[in-house]
């Protein structure tokens, strides 16, 4: 017997099994092929007569045949056992399928993923730092004057005179700039802490995403706007625009507040945008030269912008979540809607 004959036998046996109409018929087939004097043992006995160079392939194929026979017999056997001969009812396609319910990603982590993915395509790499920060990284280096109100014990969790729970993820920017020369293009998602009493819009734990781009070639407010406008379109929809309102932050100058045109009403005005057609999304600006001095950059030689936004706020706008507390209750009836 050669390989082709073996393959033909293989195919023929499977076809016979498929056509068996009763368990008894199936058993006849089993004996014909697998019984003590069946065709398969006979083939195995011929193995030693096969030329040595064909033997491994022949052995493999014989073995595959055995496995196929076993499988086909058992499948057909079950099918015949399930239904009295010849009267198998049609498959009830309305029965629920057997499936695995996958879990749901938390909306906050979803937004972080999405934002970092978009900025990733614009060349930003994720950077991270500790939740417990120093006064220098969280305030001093960010040009927050010693008497600025955000340093108050009323707003910040201090452990001692130096250590605190970071109020923003900007200290990560300081860490990165202290350790890398420009160009630096990073995005820093992370948890921050505010001494806020929890209500529908405030939470003592929040997440922020900040971005920083510093280079030795000119980088302008126009580049910042282009970057954020690209982000706005990717995140909220192709028709969404960006506008800058001048503002004040200690670590950027000029500073702006960034509004996205409302993606729900196309800027016509609705409940979410409080009829203004615009939604405040981020704070941004050109990095203040005083910040560069704190990290050892020469303010004359570098240009850069920074921006920051609240993750919870974006998640609430994006998914229509009315109360920030839902995000920390871990109620599966809420969470599984994000699967």
């Amino acid at each position: 017997m050669n390989l082709e004959e073996l393959a033909a036998l293989h195919a023929k046996s499977l076809a016979e099994i498929e056509q068996a109409e009763t368990p008894a018929a199936l058993e006849q087939i089993r004996i014909r092929y697998l019984g003590r004097n069946g065709l398969l043992p006979a083939v195995m006995k011929q193995l030693k007569d096969v030329p040595a160079d064909e033997r491994p392939a022949f052995g493999r194929q014989a073995n595959a045949w055995r496995q196929a026979l076993d499988a086909a017999l058992s499948t057909r056997g079950e099918a015949l056992a399930d239904s009295p001969a010849g009267t198998a009812p049609a498959f009830d396609s309305s029965l629920p399928g057997r499936w695995f319910a996958t879990g749901a990603q938390h909306p906050v982590s979803r937004v972080i993923d999405e934002v970092t993915r978009i900025f990733g395509r614009l060349g930003f790499t994720v950077a991270d730092g500790p939740d417990i920060e120093t006064r220098f990284n969280n305030f001093t280096a960010l040009n927050t004057a010693a008497h600025h109100p955000s340093m108050d014990a009323a707003d910040t969790f201090w452990f001692d005179d130096d250590l605190l729970l970071r109020t923003q993820t900007s200290p990560v920017q300081i860490r990165v700039m202290l350790n890398h020369q420009p160009p630096v293009r990073i995005i820093t998602p992370g948890r921050c802490y505010r001494r806020d009493t929890t209500d529908a819009t405030h939470s003592a734990n929040i997440h922020q995403i900040e971005g920083l781009y510093v280079d030795t070639r000119p980088v302008s407010l126009a580049d910042l706007k282009a970057t954020l406008a690209t982000f706005a379109r990717e995140m909220m929809g192709p028709g969404v625009g960006v506008r800058f309102r001048p503002h004040f932050f200690p670590f950027t100058e000029p500073s702006v507040e960034v509004d996205f045109s409302c993606h729900l009403c196309d800027g016509k005005g609705c409940r979410v945008c409080k009829q203004s057609g615009w939604i405040e999304i981020a704070g941004a600006g050109m990095v203040d030269p005083r910040v560069y001095r704190h990290v050892g950059y020469d303010p004359e030689k570098v240009y850069g912008f920074a921006f920051g936004m609240g993750v919870e706020r974006i998640a609430m706008i994006r998914y229509g979540i009315a109360d920030i507390r839902h995000l920390y209750e871990n109620d599966l009836r809420f969470l599984t809607q994000f699967a």
Binding site: T102, G103, A104, R191, Y328, N330
Partner: peptide, 11 residues
């Protein structure tokens, strides 16, 4: 994929 959902609690 194993069917666990992601939780997030205060620190």
């Amino acid at each position: 994929g194993f069917g666990l959902s992601e939780a997030m609690h205060y620190s």
